[in-house]
Simulated assay, not measured.
Amino acid sequence: MKKFIILFIILAGSVKAIGQEQVKEKHKVVFQMTTANEDEQKGLIRNITNLLQGWGDDFQAEVVAHGPGITFVTTDSVVAKEVESLAAKGIVFVACESTMEQKHIKPSELLRGISTVPMGIAEIVLKQEQGWSYIKSNF
C-alpha cells in the first residue's frame, strides 16, 4: 500500500508538470473580403494591424479577396500601400482566379505579393478545415 501511495504521488506530480507545459501555437485567421466598400476595406486593414501589433509573431493571417472585394488587392485599391506593407510583414493576401476571370482582371493588375487561388470560397473552407478562425470582413 505504501508503495502504491508513493507511485501515485510520483505519477500525479509528473502529470501536473506535463499539464503545465503549453505548446505555443499561432493564432491563425482567414479573412474573407467580399466588398468594394472603401470604409470596410480600411476597417480590415485596421483590424489586421491591431492583431499584428498585439500578437506579433504569434499571428498568422490570410485575406481571401473575391467577388466585389477583389478590388482590395488590385493596383487601383484605396488601401494598396497598406496591403503591400502588411504583405511584407507576412500577412498573406490571395485573389480568386474565378472572380478575376469573371471581371477580366489580369494578374498584372494585382498588387505586388498577391497570390491567387482557383476559388476564393474553397480557400476559406480549406483553411477552416485546417482549424483556422474565420472572419467575414464586411463590418
Rank of each mutant, 00 (worst) to 15 (best):
V78E: 10
A80T: 02
K103V: 10
K26S: 12
V117Y: 05
A17D: 06
A61C: 08
E25W: 07
I48L: 12
E21W: 11
E101Q: 14
I18K: 13
L44D: 06
G131H: 03
T75N: 14
W55T: 04
T71K: 11
K16T: 15
V63S: 03
G13Y: 08
V64G: 00
A80N: 02
K3Y: 10
E38S: 14
L11F: 15
V79Q: 02
G19H: 10
G90Y: 07
Q20F: 10
V64T: 01
L111K: 03
A87R: 11
E109L: 00
A95G: 00
S133Q: 10
E25A: 12
I10W: 05
Q22V: 13
V15H: 09
K106P: 02
Q128F: 02
A87Y: 05
L44V: 09
I135V: 09
Q102R: 15
F72N: 07
E109P: 00
Q32D: 11
V92E: 15
L111M: 04
L52I: 04
S77Y: 00
N47T: 15
G13L: 11
L110Y: 03
E97V: 08
I9V: 15
Q128E: 14
A12G: 14
T75V: 13
K24F: 09
G120L: 09
G43H: 06
I70A: 03
G56H: 06
K24M: 10
A12P: 03
L86S: 01
V125N: 10
V117Q: 06
L51Q: 13
E40Q: 15
I91N: 04
K2F: 09
E21V: 15
T35Q: 00
Q102M: 15
I9L: 15
L44M: 14
I45R: 02
S137C: 06
W55V: 04
D39G: 09
G13N: 07
S14A: 10
E82G: 00
F4L: 15
I18P: 04
F72D: 04
V63R: 05
F8K: 06
T35G: 01
M1P: 07
L110K: 01
G131K: 05
L111W: 02
R46Q: 14
D57A: 13
K28H: 12
Y134R: 05
K127F: 01
N50F: 10
R46M: 13
G56F: 06
A80M: 01
Q130D: 14
V83C: 03
D39L: 11
F4C: 12
G113K: 02
I114P: 01
E62C: 03
I6P: 00
A17P: 02
G120T: 09
S14C: 09
G43K: 05
P118A: 09
G90R: 06
